[in-house]
């Protein structure tokens, strides 16, 4: 299996605050990885570094052997221009906690916008794919609805379809169910589960849904205070945690 994401000693600081203090991590193609940990542990920040929504301060972060947001030549690291960073993001889909659908567009337009604007794909083809994606997330009849006419769960499913329309190689989920009413969590998790089973999509999921992580993920990474405390298969990390911090966290959430 090829490695899709490789993090080596990734550091990130906001002002005086060290948020990431050296993250080492590998994600193989087809792997589903859950990142868990208390709030403020840096897990969302790490996820956002992967598509350069945050720039890292030290270490190296690779996507398919290319540095993310930078370029390394002759032993020097160069910042990439806006356009090159945008091009890197094309292969990485992202789903946000607060959905972030574009409120001035219908569900269908939300999905169609990026493939047409960014990839310059023919409109008819994109429209067909957008309808297929809406059907897949169970919202075939909501193509012409605007985000404010949809429930949180429906908005998040449109947001997943929007990311999938770019045919990404990697999907990032930043607490995709944390902003949802409890009865709407299941419909979003169903879509994500389907993505793993049907497409074998590579996914990195920051989540508090331990049951879902145990069921779907290949690897669980527990982060605390800007470092990876432990990682491994769900049975090991959730079942027999080796570190005191992991045990303390799990005793609160399980």
């Amino acid at each position: 299996m090829t490695t899709l994401i490789r993090a080596e000693g990734v550091h990130k600081r906001f002002g005086a605050l060290d948020v990431l203090k050296g993250i080492d991590l590998e994600v193989a193609e087809g792997e589903v990885l859950a990142v868990i940990g208390p709030s403020g542990s840096g897990k969302s920040t790490f996820l956002r570094c992967i598509n350069h929504l945050e720039r890292i301060d030290a270490g190296r972060l690779y996507f398919r052997d290319h540095l993310i947001g930078y370029e390394e030549r002759d032993g020097k690291v160069y910042e990439l221009p806006d356009k090159a960073i945008a091009a890197q993001r094309v292969d990485i889909g992202m789903v946000f906690q607060r959905f972030n659908l574009f409120p001035h567009m219908t569900a269908l337009e939300n999905i169609m916008m990026a493939p047409i604007m960014v990839k310059k794909e023919p409109k008819a083809e994109v429209r067909e794919r957008a309808h297929a994606l809406l059907t897949r997330v169970g919202l075939a009849d909501k193509a012409n609805s605007r985000p404010d006419q949809l429930s949180g769960g429906q908005q998040q499913r449109v947001a997943i379809a929007r990311a999938l329309a770019m045919r990404p190689d990697l999907m990032l989920f930043d607490e995709p169910t944390s902003a949802l009413d409890p009865e709407l969590v299941g419909e979003v998790l169903d879509v994500m589960r389907d993505l793993v089973r049907e497409d074998g999509m590579t996914m990195i999921i920051v989540t508090h849904e331990m049951g879902f992580a145990r069921e779907v993920c290949d690897t669980i990474v527990f982060m605390d205070d800007g470092v990876v405390v432990e990682s491994g298969p769900p049975g090991a990390v959730l079942g027999e945690p080796r570190h005191e911090r992991t045990r303390a966290f799990l005793s609160k959430v399980l």
Binding site: K83, A87, F96, F102, M117, M166
Partner: peptide
């Protein structure tokens, strides 16, 4: 969040 969603989809700053 709108800017972030657009950037995550690969839109440039101008787009």
């Amino acid at each position: 969040g709108q800017t972030e969603a657009a950037h995550a989809l690969g839109l440039t700053r101008f787009q």
